[in-house]
């Protein structure tokens, strides 16, 4: 099995995530798409670690996982507080700020 397939898969996942962020309306779903992008980056890191024959990429994936978890916690806290105020998690409803 050639590792290139994993790179392609990661690129596809990253694109799906990026498109999801742009077109989905629910803040939670948008956020899950961001997580998908982070995990696509992780897959790329691990695959390149295999191709390059070094461990750095795997260690980086660890760091990314921890950072992503911290981001989840902060993000869910913010989304929850706005949901409790508005009874809605749609990013279209959050539209008070404009000129």
């Amino acid at each position: 099995m050639t590792p290139e397939y994993y790179l392609v898969l990661a690129a596809v996942l990253f694109t799906i995530g990026a498109v999801g962020v742009l077109i989905r309306r629910n803040a939670i779903v948008v956020f899950m798409c961001v997580e998908l992008m982070l995990n696509a980056a992780n897959l790329t890191l691990v695959t390149f670690a295999r191709i390059n024959g070094s461990l750095d990429g795997q260690i980086m994936a660890f760091f990314v996982m921890v950072v992503a978890a911290a981001e989840v916690v902060v993000g869910l806290a913010i989304i929850m507080s706005i949901f409790r105020s508005r009874r809605s998690a749609s990013v279209d409803d959050a539209n008070l700020l404009k000129y």
Binding site: A18, V30, D56, M60
Partner: peptide, 21 residues
Amino acid sequence: YFLLGAFASAFFLYGVALIYG
């Protein structure tokens, strides 16, 4: 700020992964 910031940092990270490659 959070959603867009997380979006941007995902781009940053994927860039790091490609440069690592």
